[in-house]
Simulated assay, not measured.
Amino acid sequence: MNAVRIIIIAKEPRPGLAKTRLIPALGAQGAAELADRLLHHVVTQALAADLGPVELCVTPDRRADYWHHWHDNDRLELTEQSDGDLGQRMATAARRGLASGLPVMLIGTDCPQLEAPKLQAMATTLMKQDACLCPVLDGGYSLLGLRRFDASLFSDMPWSTDQVTTLTRDRLRQLGWRWHESEPLWDLDEPDDLVRLQHYPSLSGHSI
């Protein structure tokens, strides 16, 4: 399998900053603890996929104490997100990753189903396409793979709405690119999503 750079777009799991839509169900501390477990899960799966470099692209500050222990993993590159909205930050990370000479797969931390076999399968499809996409049930996506860059995929996008995947498809079509989509996955954004954690005991912790 050809190498792919996995770029994990991550937010420090700080109370009041991470998974804020889950605060009504879990409280600020509980939401942050779940965000921490989700982050560890996705890093573990990305490394287990063994596809190539794994980059942890973080906000708001990679010098924060939380990130210090991640520096000890020599298989992980720790970078900082750029300024701007989510689209600008993702675009910067994608452009920088592609400039290293490898296709990239941008992933978040909210989708436990992005396990190593799924990442490997998406990387395989990316070798034959311009892009690949893992939609999620709420209308967004959990993975965007790219072999080339175009800013239209990230600009003027209504992030955190049910239009993200539809608009991304439209823009891929307008570019004339070929892409592969997986079956829709689920992610953890709203309190109603928490019931799905019963399938992932290691993520449920004691707060749920």
Rank of each mutant, 00 (worst) to 15 (best):
1 M>N: 08
3 A>L: 11
4 V>K: 01
5 R>S: 08
15 P>R: 03
16 G>F: 14
19 K>A: 15
20 T>E: 12
22 L>N: 00
24 P>I: 12
25 A>P: 12
29 Q>V: 15
32 A>F: 13
35 A>Y: 07
35 A>N: 04
36 D>I: 06
40 H>S: 07
40 H>C: 08
41 H>C: 01
42 V>M: 04
53 P>K: 00
53 P>M: 02
56 L>S: 01
57 C>K: 02
60 P>D: 13
61 D>W: 05
65 D>R: 15
67 W>G: 01
70 W>Y: 15
70 W>L: 14
72 D>T: 05
73 N>H: 14
75 R>P: 04
76 L>A: 06
79 T>H: 11
84 G>E: 07
86 L>A: 01
86 L>E: 04
88 Q>G: 15
88 Q>I: 01
89 R>W: 08
95 R>G: 00
95 R>A: 11
95 R>I: 01
97 G>F: 12
99 A>V: 02
101 G>R: 12
101 G>H: 12
102 L>C: 06
104 V>G: 06
106 L>C: 12
109 T>A: 14
110 D>R: 10
111 C>R: 03
113 Q>R: 06
114 L>N: 03
127 M>K: 11
127 M>F: 14
127 M>N: 13
129 Q>T: 14
129 Q>I: 04
137 L>I: 09
139 G>D: 03
142 S>Y: 09
145 G>W: 01
146 L>S: 03
148 R>P: 08
150 D>H: 13
151 A>Q: 14
152 S>A: 10
153 L>Q: 01
154 F>A: 02
154 F>C: 03
156 D>F: 15
156 D>M: 12
157 M>R: 00
162 D>R: 06
163 Q>F: 13
165 T>Y: 06
166 T>I: 11
167 L>T: 00
171 R>H: 04
177 W>L: 09
177 W>Y: 05
178 R>M: 08
182 S>L: 10
183 E>Y: 09
187 D>M: 10
189 D>I: 11
191 P>K: 10
193 D>E: 08
195 V>S: 13
196 R>T: 04
200 Y>V: 04
202 S>D: 11
202 S>N: 07
203 L>N: 03
203 L>H: 04
204 S>P: 00
204 S>A: 15
207 S>G: 02
